[in-house]
Design a protein around this nucleic acid. Sequence first.
DNA 1: CATATTTGACCTAG
DNA 2: CTAGGTCAAATATG
Length: 355
Amino acid sequence: MDSSKSWDQKSLVNEIIEGLELAKQLRLSLNAKSSSDKKQFLVQRILSSYEKALLMLKCSGSPQSPIGAITSVPESLMSASAGPCCDDNNRSLQDRHDLTEVSKKRKEMAKWTEHVTRASSENGIEGAHEDGHCWRKYGQKDILGTKHPRSYYRCTYRNSESCWATKQVQRSDEDPTVFEITYKGKHTCSHGRSSVPPPPSPEKQERKRHNHNDTYQQQQSQGNQISFPTNLRVNTENLDDTENTASPFSFTSTSFGCMNNDDAFLSLMLDDNGLLDNFNQSLLSPAAGGSNYYFEPASQMRNIAGKEQRSESDLAEIVSAKNSSTNSSIPDIDFSLEPAELDSYFPFDCPGFFL
DNA sequence: CATATTTGACCTAG
DNA sequence: CTAGGTCAAATATG
C-alpha cells in the first residue's frame, strides 16, 4: 500500500477537493434555489468525485491511508448468504440450530461502521445521533487500547420480531466527540426510523451524567447551522457487494428517525446515480429504514481489502458526521461536505429530534 | 408492573 | 490464555 500506490495521492486529494468544491457549489445552488437540474448535476458530480477517490483508496488498500478519517474496520465479515441480518450474534441460536456452519467465523452478517461526531458539549449536541431504531443495551466492555468502553446494543424488538440487528458504540479516544458506531445485521423489525421516536440514544448514559439541558433542544433553535452534520465524511472502508447488506448508514440520528425528508435526499441521490442502484432495495425497503445513504459503487469497491472478502458480504462503511463547524475541515483530506448540503434536506425542527 | 440499564460472569475465536 | 462479545441477574426508571 505504501510502496506502489496505484494512485497518486495528489490525484486523490484533487478528487476530494473537487468534490468539496462541488459540494460548495451545490450549497450555493440550494440557497439560490436554482434549478433542480443543476443541483442534480452537482450531486452527481460530487458523488462521482468521491467515488473515484474512494476507488483510489480502495485500490491502494491502505488501512492507514492518508485519510485519517478512514477507519479501518477490523475484520471483514462476511455475511453468509444466510439471512439479512439474523445470523450471527445469536451465537446461542446458531449453536442450537447449526453449529456446524459457524465454525470459523463468528461474524457473518453485514457490518458497517459509522463515525458520528456528536457534539462538543458546548454545542450541546451530545447524543445527537440516533438512527431511528430502538436499541437496547445489553453489554459494555472495556476494549484494550481504548480509553472508553464499548457499548453493545441490540434491537429492542429482537425477541418480538426476531430482529437481530445490533450495534456497537465506541467513543474515540482521540476525539471524544466522535463515536464510532458499528452496525451489524439488518433490521427486520417493522419499527424503522419512521415511526418510533427514538428512545434513549446509545450514549444516553453519558448525557445523563453530563448535561442534558443544553443538548439537543439547543440545536433545534440553532437550526440550520449546527444541528448536525456540518461536515459529512463518508468513508468507505470495506465494501462488498452483498445484496442483503442491510442498511448502511443512516446519517446518524434521531433526526432522521423522524423526518421524511430524507426521502427527498435519497431520491436525489438515487435519481442521479446509477451508482446507488444496488442499494435501492434496501434503501427503500421499509425494514431497512429509509434514510440510509448508500455509498457504494458495488462491484468496484469491494474487494481490494484483499482478504476474505469473498463474495459474501464484507461491508463496512463509515460515515462521519461532523457537526463541529466550519473549520473542522481537514486540511488534508477528510471528505468534508459543507453543512448546508445537508441542512437543506433535513429539517431540524422536528420534535423529538436528537433525542 | 413493565421495560431498560448496569455489570460481572460466562463463552468463544484467535 | 486473552480479548471481545453476550448473557442474565440485579437494579433503575417511568
